[in-house]
């Protein structure tokens, strides 16, 4: 044992910082979160064990069901929006007839560089009910003002738009580099055989992008479940657009219900763990690792 360690001391040494940091800042907090989730704790006195009470409370808490509903919306609408748009933009950028490629690539990537917090503030003003530009445009098109951030019914929409706006460039870039790897020969052969553009897209492009699209979907899923900045800055009335992660933050650090916040953290951990396992198994089966 000692011999092996000594002989392979360099790789172990090189990996040890990661292992130590993981232990202290991920594994221990994760286990501790599970423990705290069974306690009542306001951060001042010692945590008091209350069994499953936090989880029972959660089941009857409308704020929790609101947060789950909202996060689900961000996930589904976000995934469809981001994947659809980034596939479209990537294909446009990869088009053979396109001039000034570098310019378009740089310009369409810019939203990803912009801080979501700053963009959230900007969106707050664009979506303002009485002075915002969005409603002004709606009015000039013959529509009526929509109380975007002041009504519970609409408050989730600006959040999801910001989420899609900011993340699309990242996935565009990933899909674009996937498109670069598809050999032109496939398309040439298909054209000779008389396949239409749509047929080529469905029969060649999509199957060959399979892995990449899956990777994108997994990443978007994780990003949606840990969404915080967008809904925190663009908060609507009550919990109308609160994300699960934001609810955890508010419960623990604003209302000082640290036990309940930890229980919400456990729910998040379980969801992320599930996603992680799925992607791990798929990657293994496709021989990627």
């Amino acid at each position: 044992m000692w011999q092996t360690l000594k002989r392979h001391r360099y790789p172990y040494l090189f990996i040890s910082p990661y292992l130590i940091l993981f232990l202290v800042f991920q594994l221990v907090p994760t286990i501790a979160t599970v423990y705290y989730s069974f306690t009542e704790w306001n951060g001042l006195r010692a945590p008091r064990w209350i069994g499953w009470r936090n989880y029972q409370l959660m089941m009857n808490d409308y704020m929790f069901s609101d947060a789950i509903r909202n996060t689900f919306r961000y996930w589904i609408v976000g995934a469809i929006g981001i994947m659809g748009l980034s596939l479209l933009i990537a294909m446009l950028l990869n088009s053979k007839v396109l001039r000034a490629k570098q310019f378009f690539r740089t310009a369409t990537f810019l939203p990803y560089v912009c801080a979501s917090v700053a963009m959230g503030l900007i969106f707050r003003m664009l979506f303002e009910e009485h002075a915002g530009l969005i409603n002004e445009i709606l009015l000039s098109l013959g529509g009526s003002r929509i109380p975007w951030l002041t009504s519970s019914a609409y408050a989730w929409i600006p959040v999801v738009i910001l989420f899609v706006w900011r993340l699309t460039p990242w996935f565009t870039m990933i899909i674009f580099s996937g498109l670069l790897n598809i050999s032109d020969e496939y398309y040439e052969a298909a054209t000779v055989d008389g396949a239409s553009g749509w047929q080529q897209f469905v029969r060649i492009t999509l199957p060959l992008l399979n892995h990449i699209l899956f990777f994108c979907f997994v990443t978007i899923t994780v990003d949606a479940w840990r969404l915080f900045n967008e809904s925190h800055i663009l908060s609507g009335p009550g919990t109308s657009n609160t994300s699960l992660f934001e609810l955890m933050y508010t419960s623990a650090f604003k209302n000082f219900k640290l036990g309940y916040g930890s229980a919400l953290g456990v729910v998040l951990i379980l969801i992320l763990l599930g996603i992680s396992l799925v992607q791990f198994m798929v990657r293994r089966r496709t021989g990627e690792i």
Binding site: F22, F25, Q26, V28, P29, T30, A32, T33, Y36, V218, V222, R226, F228, F245, M248, Y249, A252, F253, L258, G261, S262, G265, V266, L268, I269, L272, L273, I275, S276, L277, Q279, F280, R283, I289
Partner: peptide, 14 residues
């Protein structure tokens, strides 16, 4: 790889 997708944020309290 298995831990790649798990974010530390969920353990914010501890």
């Amino acid at each position: 790889i298995a831990t790649m997708m798990i974010s530390a944020e969920a353990g914010a309290v501890p």
